[in-house]
Each structure stands twice: as structure tokens, then as C-alpha cells.
Simulated scan of single mutants.
Amino acid sequence: MARPAEFDRKEVLDKAMKVFWRTGYTATSVTDLVNATDLKPGSIYGAFNSKRGLFLEVIDAYANNSLTRIQHCMEQRDSAIESIHLFFSRMTEEISCDTIGKGCLMINTLLELATEDDEVRERVTQYLNQIEHHLYLTLEKGRLNGELQPDTDTESLAKMLMTGIWGLRVLSTTRPDPSVYPGVVSHLLSAIPAIH
């Protein structure tokens, strides 16, 4: 029996992620992945079963990394409102640096494959729902500790902020002047009924 090829799985996922992110799932060929990862086709199939198997693992890795960063961001401030402002500030910095309009891998994937691949749609939707849940928990914390009006519908507010995130991520693919982002974010965050 041939010995399995040895490689750094995380490094391969990072390299494959850049390809999928830049060109999308459908337009990415196995040859593209071979060139990016320096693995032979047999090694890719042996480790991930298929291009789709590699893509699913890339999605999971991207989601886990993003959720870890979001959770860390939400926990950095005692104030719930400050935590949300910090989150949007960091996202604004990130998309302002997106000079090629690559957008968000998850949202790009959903827009590309949602009607074609139920498993991919469910995975990405679950990830986006977790982001929304982090927003909801943070807003609810703010409502309970007196930062928000006591009758604030934190569930709907979280959905509104999530819709804003979607919009900002899609907007970034058009490569606008980065100066547009702060104003958009300011309007979004002004919907939070803070008690001053």
C-alpha cells in the first residue's frame, strides 16, 4: 500500500481558500487547486475525496476562523454597544482594504450555489445564523444591563444588522471608494436604540 502524502492540512486549506474565494467554486478547476497547493491530483482526492470535499472543508475552516474572531470581538468590551461598534469598525477596516472586490467567501458562495447545492446552502446559512446569534446575544445583554431601551426587539434588530452586513459585503465587491463605508455603518448603528 502506498504511503499517504504528508502535508500541512491547514496550509493547503488556506491556499485552496484563496483560489475559491477569488474565482468561485464552479470556475475553480482541479488544475487551479493543484497549482495553488503544490499537491498532485491524487493527493487532493486522497485527502478530500473531491473538489467539492475540499471546498466543504474550506467553508468550515473559514467559518470557524470568522466565528472565533467575532466572538473575541464581542467579548473585548464590557459595553454591548461598544462591542457592536468595534465589530463594525473592524469589518469596515477589512472591507476598505479589499482592493480587488473579493467580498465575503460565505456570501459569495451562497449567491453562487444556494439554488444548486442544499448542503452548501445549509452550511453557509448555519454560519451566518451564528453571526446573527452573536449579535442578538450582545444586543440582549445591552438591553438587560440598561444600555438599550427596555422594549427593544433585539431579535429583529440583530436581523437588521445582519442584513446590513450582507449589504456591506456585497457592496465591497463593487470596489467603491472606501470613504462610503463609515457613513453607511453610522446609519446602520443609529438604529440601535441606545440610552444615553
Rank of each mutant, 00 (worst) to 15 (best):
R90D: 08
N129P: 02
T31N: 09
K141T: 03
L189G: 01
A114C: 11
Q126R: 13
A5W: 05
S50D: 03
L39R: 08
A5V: 07
P182K: 15
L110W: 13
I70H: 03
F20V: 00
V184L: 11
H134M: 10
P4T: 04
E93S: 10
G53E: 04
P178A: 13
I70Q: 01
G146K: 05
E140K: 11
M17E: 09
D153A: 03
M162P: 02
G101T: 01
S50V: 05
A61N: 07
C97Y: 15
F48M: 08
A114N: 07
P182G: 09
A114T: 02
E140R: 09
F88M: 05
F48W: 11
F48P: 00
V124A: 08
G146E: 05
A16S: 09
V124G: 03
A80P: 00
E57W: 07
G167L: 07
A158H: 06
I100N: 07
A61D: 03
L139A: 07
S89H: 08
V30L: 15
T174G: 04
N49I: 06
D14P: 06
V180W: 14
L128N: 08
L86S: 09
L144T: 02
P176Q: 06
I44Q: 10
Y127V: 05
C104P: 08
D8M: 13
E11Y: 11
K15P: 00
A80N: 00
